[in-house]
Design a protein around this nucleic acid. Sequence first.
DNA 1: CTCCAGATTGACTGGTCAGTCAACGTGAGG
DNA 2: CCTCACGTTGACTGACCAGTCAATCTGGAG
Lengths: 211, 211
Amino acid sequence: MATAPKAGAVDKRRLILDAAVRVFARRGFHHCRVSDVADEAGVAYGLVYHYFESKEEILNTLFLERWQIMLDAIAEIDSRDLPARDKLYSIAGFIIDSYRHDPDLMKVIIVEVTRAANSFGRLHLERIREAYRGISEIVESARADGSFKPDIPSEFAAMCFYGAIEQLLTSWIFEVLPRTDAEFERAKELVVEAICGGLESAGTGARATSA
Amino acid sequence: MATAPKAGAVDKRRLILDAAVRVFARRGFHHCRVSDVADEAGVAYGLVYHYFESKEEILNTLFLERWQIMLDAIAEIDSRDLPARDKLYSIAGFIIDSYRHDPDLMKVIIVEVTRAANSFGRLHLERIREAYRGISEIVESARADGSFKPDIPSEFAAMCFYGAIEQLLTSWIFEVLPRTDAEFERAKELVVEAICGGLESAGTGARATSA
DNA sequence: CTCCAGATTGACTGGTCAGTCAACGTGAGG
DNA sequence: CCTCACGTTGACTGACCAGTCAATCTGGAG
């Protein structure tokens, strides 16, 4: 089994996880070897299998660890007594700051786990849905108190909101351009303004779309 | 080289591409063998390499073929004389109908290409950006004529819009639930209403977000 | 110092699979 | 009927790599 991180000694398990983040981000989960991870961690090949069942389990661990932190953050934000818009701003801020703090980890989670949801991990689906649910609840109570429109279901709204943020991160991941702190802060405001306030000018009464 | 689809004869190249869509969608690009594709197409293993350089080239071909169709559609929609909201509705409609018509192909494109920032994404980045640009232009002229807010940059708006749609397809892809025509139609309206009109009620003046 | 349990090592194996290739089929043109 | 250019076949190979395991190290307890 794992665990028992000796006091003074380096926690090799942690070392392997951190190395895996860097390697997965650089080469992609499928294009890297377990030996790359071991080398990056400065650890023998076999030790990886002492701490993890398989290459996939490393990815699972990384995802679950980080996602739980986000779920906790969402729950905490949800429990505050704030307008929905401010809650959503806090969530966007949390996710954007997560990226700012550890872009490699967020890249791995977005790029590799979403794809993996195809083959393994119904487990992950449920986890992902939990995040949606947290956001939905915020929207739902805003609908109840009249600050949000009643005609957009809260699940749908949560999806748009999360989708916009994920796309934002994806664009940062793709373009290698480094981002400045100011840009990160601006992005938080913009995403909330776009989703909550919409794109149309206040005066625009154009509602005709179809049926 | 390829081509020269004999009149009466079946076009084996097409057969292979169509089989690849099904196999990639079912097992994922990385988890399937070239022999799976050949079997699915009812064709000998070697023939795949007669028509394609590599497994990757099959995926590339599928993406480029379909993406070009979307770029053409966006350009055509862009050129119409319509309010921005209606143009965006048409684009959302086109993408959603693409999914409705061939969910496997859209799944492969989104899961294996669009999100694969490491291998394929890089290659097709420019193509993907072109789609963004088309959407941006629509938003940009709406900003110019005053129907859209000036304070959200058009590139940012395009990102939110596309992100919301992609998230929508992703949710369809991963929950196996089949969708009804009515649900597809409703989704088109909702995504446009959410992004253009925003989530907040018209009366809500709450603008305080932070700094 | 001895013993032990867990940490650590890295050479090795077994299986998988992308891509090759030499042979065979086929039909149009001469 | 022959020929030639493709289309088509599938057994084969060479590389690669996840995962195994027996040996070695380490440090604390007795």
